[in-house]
């Protein structure tokens, strides 16, 4: 299809994209690796700072706090993804039923929290969850569900569970939108035909809807994972990584290293970011392989 005369035009219209993509996506990775090999404070030129080889990696990999932040980030990501993906799929499924009344109203209900920035939601919940006079504790006490106020951010696991629940609440609308878009790929007449043939709701879900939304589903799941891995605002606002260092996550570690030290540690911070980025890529490659293999198997068995 490509004609020679078009080539110049193609590259011409690609320029804005290429500039942004190279400058803000590709180049930062190259630069992160360079930073991570220097004792760099982010102030002067990188060339003036001493090259320390792999020292920063040694520092990061032997830092128990990095290990903790690393494990916390994955635990949070897996936990949050397991809640938000199925739940948003279910909501999207309900919202796209042709017999649902007032669909526009309910759609808006589920989208609204998504329009509030996570940081602001975190502040609102900071008040709502307050053990002294927060609305949620007052409600729980009034309903006699608890004798004394609950400190939802008391310890690592509870604080994380709290963050997972409220961040899921905030982001749900976005995933509902994605799933609704995926569900548009299911032709209504296929479902009607199946219904005529006597397939029940569950059978239609299992044999028609799920296989058809799966390709989009893989993308939605990947995005869901990557956005959870980037968790920062909730932690910074609600717990500042605490109590103690119980809710440290990677982005918070990177931020603290680079911007909250007496002397900014861009080198160590970059090493941490790179180690994390690489493992994320490896996990994605493995998951991709597994998904691919599973699909091949399915084809072999003709399922």
């Amino acid at each position: 299809m490509s004609r020679r005369t078009d080539l110049g035009k193609i590259y011409l219209v690609l320029i804005p994209f290429l500039l942004l993509f190279l400058a803000f996506t590709v180049w930062p990775l190259v630069r992160t690796v360079q930073f991570s090999l220097h004792d760099f404070d982010g102030i002067g030129a990188l060339g003036d700072s001493p090259n320390v080889g792999l020292d920063n990696y040694k520092t990061v990999l032997t830092d128990p706090l990095f290990g903790k932040a690393y494990a916390n980030t994955w635990a949070f990501t897996i936990g949050q993804t397991l809640i938000k993906l199925p739940l948003s799929f279910l909501i999207a499924l309900l919202l796209t039923r042709p017999w649902l009344r007032w669909p526009a109203f309910f759609r808006t209900v589920f989208f609204l929290p998504w329009l509030m920035p996570a940081s602001i939601v975190a502040m609102v919940f900071g008040y709502l969850l307050s053990p002294s006079d927060g609305a949620i504790n007052q409600l729980l006490t009034a309903l006699h569900l608890t004798d004394q106020p609950i400190d939802f951010l008391r310890s690592g696991p509870i604080a994380f569970a709290t963050i997972a629940v409220i961040s899921t609440w905030q982001i749900m609308g976005q995933y509902v939108i994605f799933w609704m878009a995926a569900l548009q790929l299911v032709p209504p007449n296929l479902l009607e035909a199946a219904e005529v043939d006597g397939a029940g709701a569950l059978q239609r879900l299992w044999h028609i809807i799920l296989p058809l939304v799966r390709p989009m589903g893989v993308i939605i799941a990947s995005l869901g994972l990557i956005w959870s891995l980037g968790i920062f605002d909730w932690v910074q606002i609600l717990t500042s990584g605490g109590p103690g260092t119980d809710t440290y996550v990677i982005n918070y570690y990177v931020y603290e290293m680079a911007f909250a030290q007496a002397r900014p540690q861009f080198g160590t911070s970059s090493a941490a970011a790179f180690v994390f980025g690489i493992t994320v890529l490896i996990v994605y490659a493995l998951v991709g392989k597994l998904v691919g293999r599973a699909q091949l198997k399915r084809k072999e068995y003709g399922v």
Partner: peptide
């Protein structure tokens, strides 16, 4: 066109790069 495949692969590969990895170099840039 020459480069179209590379761009496609790069976009996918970098989609999974966490914000943490890019924020400091962007700051410097």
């Amino acid at each position: 066109f020459p480069g179209s495949r590379v761009i496609g692969v790069l976009i996918l590969a970098f989609l999974f790069m966490p914000t943490a990895t890019s924020v400091l170099p962007i700051f410097e840039l």
